[in-house]
Simulated assay, not measured.
Amino acid sequence: MKIWAVANQKGGVGKTTTAVALAGLLADMGRRVVIVDLDPHGSMTSYFGYDPDRLERSAFELFRQQGAVPQGLAAELLLDTSHEHISLLPSSTVLATLERQAPGQSGLGLVVGRALTQLWKRFDHALIDSPPLLGVLMVNALAASQQLIVPVQTEFLALKGLERMTNTLAMINRSRRQPLPHTIVPTLFDRRTQASTDTLKVLHAHYAEHLWPAFVPVDTRLRGASRAGLTPSRYDSGSRAVLAYRALLKYLLAAQTTCEVA
């Protein structure tokens, strides 16, 4: 199973949309995909029609056993989605209480990785939607993943979030055997605005080594897909954003193959 985390230390950058879009495209190819919502806001959970305020069981259950994950628990928590090849490990708002509990517990940083190990043979890909704050949930996402995807809205305030994210990644890499590969993905690009154009230039100037050379444009069809609870490619396979995400997926799969060969 390939495990990708989608993270940025700023909200509103297209993180959930990116995770759902990539999951949908992988599922369209016949891949079995599990999406993991670690954001207490539960945007991905809500996307597929579940209420994170009302769910009785969620990813929070994984953290109840002092870092251990009871055998079979991860599979028990899975929910169906509108795509037959995608399963959801949902979030709930109670995840927000985890940070207060974390100082008194050990081993919490590897919980999600242990849970995904239980699903290893059942799925081909896992995509983790991480919260925008550095804490035990983001640490879990980064520790479990083999590839980090960092969506960055093409506006100047988003650059500060990217700077914090790269600092966090440097910290995480000090505790990993191998550095976590990461790809920066410009999102919500609007060529009509100077802010988008200028921010894209800054990304190319300062982050070229890890930057996906294209961008995901602003596209109202993404909002329509969210309202319908469908993956963007199922809602409109020919939309501008879906074409961009399809190119991004091809880039990510090629990059991962290169890393594995190396």
Rank of each mutant, 00 (worst) to 15 (best):
T199Y: 12
E56I: 02
A19W: 03
V36D: 08
I128E: 10
A170D: 15
L127T: 00
Q146I: 12
V152I: 15
I86L: 04
E155R: 15
F60C: 04
G67T: 00
A205L: 11
V218E: 10
L95F: 02
T183G: 07
P90V: 08
D28K: 05
R240G: 10
A126T: 05
V150C: 00
M44Y: 06
A75Y: 01
E76F: 11
P132E: 14
S106W: 12
D124G: 06
V136D: 01
G12L: 13
L142A: 13
L95W: 02
D198N: 13
A144D: 01
A68L: 12
F189M: 07
S237Y: 00
D219N: 06
P151D: 05
K160V: 15
W120G: 02
P186L: 02
F189E: 09
T193D: 04
T258Y: 06
S91V: 09
L22D: 05
L127G: 02
G24S: 04
W120F: 08
A225E: 05
Q178I: 11
G109M: 05
A214G: 07
L77F: 08
M1D: 00
Y251K: 05
D53T: 12
I184T: 11
L88K: 03
N173Q: 13
L211A: 05
Y235L: 11
Q9C: 14
T197C: 13
V20P: 13
S106Q: 14
V261P: 01
T117I: 09
A115Q: 00
T199M: 13
H41V: 12
V33K: 04
L137Q: 02
F48P: 04
F48A: 05
A141V: 02
R240F: 10
P52Y: 04
Y207F: 15
I172V: 15
G30N: 04
I149P: 01
N173T: 10
D28R: 09
G161Y: 10
Q66V: 01
H85M: 09
A255V: 06
I128S: 07
L95N: 07
V111W: 02
L55F: 05
M1P: 01
Y50M: 02
A23K: 02
V34T: 01
G109P: 09
T18A: 07
E56W: 01
I172Q: 05
R64H: 06
R227Y: 07
S82E: 00
K10C: 13
A247S: 13
D28L: 03
A96T: 12
D53H: 10
T231V: 00
A21K: 04
V218Q: 11
R240M: 12
D80Y: 02
N8C: 12
A126N: 01
T97D: 15
G72W: 02
G104E: 07
P181Q: 03
S196V: 11
L222T: 08
R122H: 11
V111G: 01
S87N: 05
R177E: 14
D80R: 09
V202G: 05
N173P: 15
E260K: 10
S58Y: 07
V36E: 00
L148D: 11
G135H: 06
